[in-house]
Design a protein around this nucleic acid. Structure first.
Lengths: 316, 316
DNA sequence: GTGAAAGCGCTAACAG
DNA sequence: CTGTTAGCGCTTTCAC
């Protein structure tokens, strides 16, 4: 139709339209409240202008301030790129193939992923032809946007030493996320270099204090007892605080505590945590930028690393 | 193709397939990693299996625990109905027509809306043929899922009276959301019935304390001064607390405070607010249920109201 | 300067 | 029991 030509600027094949007709078309369109059909457009152009977000974790809990920050960043950046954002949340008891179909079924042009280690879905996704950008946890073959986990751990270790701490307990996680490992390894190395005495736990993936830790913090000889605990991630630190409180361990009087993430909370929390601030909003936004380039067939960097900074609170 | 017939159960036109062919097709599909194209399906079936969420507020701040709860509810319910969830967040400096096109362009089958009063986009939407369900704020002509604002206010008023309060300051909002008005009117009536002395403010839409309120709470004669403040919504109550703290007004020692919403926070807040708990997760989930019925052409109730309960914290 | 035709991937109805 | 056809709403190429 002539209509198509006038609606879009596609004067490609030397096709031009008289001003009269042009106006006539435009008016008609407005009168009938015409809105182009996005689905037909998508089928035609092999492009939906929707980008997806997927987390390997069982379900997406928006209450988690980290997730909230990521979502905010994605959303803002999507808007900026005139893309819509599709949230893939809970995939409880769905088969790998089902999940894969949902994701790769053509509804979205690309996917921002918060990867989990060793997930079959993740493997299948990363081997698919769907453009993918990972955040937070760097993935070997996939463009990833991460924060400078190593520097963060170094800053923290240095700060704790400056504050006079000598014995520190580091809480990693059983799950071997790239970021968990990077943070832990860097912290251990920094601690060693700075002459700190270390204990490390790799248990409990929900952040609660373990029996071993209770022993360490309440039963061990005072001169061997850690004076500060470092959690690989803030969310676990907050859980840990509550547990300590129940045990009568006061933070920071009896024990200092630090975390990693530094995302802003909706309301003021009971404890202002000393932590490493990572710019998750920017990470998410950058991931979308990268994804757009990827979709447009451009070459992109394999890993982009954003800087972090120490955020001194009341807990250490 | 025979293929289509075997993939779907559509033995409609008396069409049956031999087991041999069936298996051959299935195998071929698996071998080539075939996944049906969602866009083509959508074009064909006039159904995308995507539902949207839109808030009239300028931008969608996921940090807001209320929004987070709603998002969680939507997400869970969408998953349950095998729908995907599309988030329409910030629409800053987009024209009404652009926003409308995004929303009504056929990408989604229906929309869950958190309405704002007197928005041109909202009007256009509510008059469109897109299936819509509103949450939180009841909308005259549109199916809405809300909470029992009136009972909430009554419960709160009664509780405060039981605690011995006699003078209360109620903080409404300049914006006349349906829920704001319902809560306020019910509270005023309850207060009157219970013989409370009332002051009311309708100012400040960001929750910060106003000059008038500072005067009321610090300058007025002690025997006229309110002993408790009620905020129409928790988020404003939290902001108000911080302001009070800066002014040296201690909560709850100098002044009691209550809110409305009672959503759970990611981490323990500095103050455990006395409030009315509204089941926003269920509201969101129910909204999706309703929307699905609407999309399927069924008749739905005009307004569904979910019960609330008093949640006693430390601030009142 | 305008209109007709093909095709994006899929399915429902109908012939063969 | 299997294959062909038409059409969902749109754009692009190419005759007229």
């Amino acid at each position: 139709m002539t209509v198509s030509v006038v609606m879009n600027g596609s004067s490609n094949g030397g096709t031009r339209v008289s001003e009269a007709t042009r106006q006539r078309v435009l008016k008609a369109a407005k009168d009938m409240g015409y809105t182009p059909n996005a689905v037909a457009l998508a089928l035609r152009g092999q492009r939906t202008n929707i980008i997806g977000y997927y987390t390997g974790h069982e379900s997406l809990d928006v209450h988690d301030p980290f997730i909230a920050t990521v979502l905010n960043g994605l959303q803002q950046s999507c808007h900026h790129h005139h893309q819509d954002l599709l949230i893939f949340g809970s995939f409880e008891r769905s088969s790998v193939d089902d999940i894969y179909s949902s994701l790769a079924g053509g509804k979205i042009d690309g996917l921002v992923v918060l990867p989990t280690p060793k997930s079959p879905v993740m493997d299948k996704l990363l081997n698919s032809h769907l453009p993918i950008v990972c955040i937070a946890n760097s993935q070997p073959e996939t463009p990833s946007v991460v924060v400078d986990d190593c520097t963060g751990s170094y800053l923290l270790a240095q700060y704790l030493v400056d504050k006079g701490h000598q014995r520190v307990h580091y809480r990693a996680d059983a799950l071997t996320h790239t970021s968990t490992v990077r943070r832990r390894d860097a912290f251990l190395q920094a601690a060693t270099e700075l002459g700190l005495t270390l204990t490390v736990s790799n248990e409990s993936s929900d952040g609660h204090i373990t029996r071993r830790e209770v022993e360490l913090l309440t039963q061990s000889a005072p001169e061997e007892r850690p004076t500060v605990v470092v959690s690989w991630v803030d969310s676990h630190a907050y859980v840990f605080i509550e547990d300590c409180e129940k045990l009568g361990i006061r933070i920071p009087d009896d024990l200092a505590l630090a975390g990693f993430d530094g995302v802003s909370l909706g309301v003021r929390p009971a404890y202002k945590l000393t932590t490493v601030h990572a710019p998750w909003l920017d990470v998410a936004a950058t991931a979308v930028d990268l994804l757009m380039d990827l979709i447009d067939g451009k070459e992109v960097e394999r890993e982009i690393m954003l800087p972090v900074e120490l955020l001194i609170g009341d807990t250490a």
